[in-house]
């Protein structure tokens, strides 16, 4: 049950940051490997269309 969490504790942290860029900048300052995603609200913020797109992409 805890194997994957213990595996995380034993490894170098590698972060994908989705959202506020300042969080990625802070992690870089602390020497953490981090990649910032170019995120924006899907389909112009239209929730219905976004959900349709998501099911198409899955």
């Amino acid at each position: 049950m805890e194997e994957k969490i213990l595996e995380l504790f034993g490894k170098k942290l590698k972060v994908i940051n989705i959202g506020l860029e300042s969080f990625a900048e802070s992690l870089k300052e602390e020497g953490v490997d981090v990649i910032q995603m170019d995120w924006e609200p899907p389909a112009g913020g239209d929730a219905e269309l976004a959900s349709l797109l998501d099911s198409l992409m899955d």
């Binding site: 995380l8 490894k11 942290l13 590698k14 972060v15 994908i16 940051n17 989705i18 959202g19 506020l20 969080f23 990625a24 992690l27 490997d33 990649i35 995603m37 995120w39 609200p41």
Partner: peptide, 17 residues
């Protein structure tokens, strides 16, 4: 593509609305 660019990524920090 993020996972391709960073193999072995182990944590996602998410702060979208």
């Amino acid at each position: 593509s993020a996972l391709d660019a960073m193999p072995g990524a182990n944590l996602a920090v998410i702060s979208v609305p």
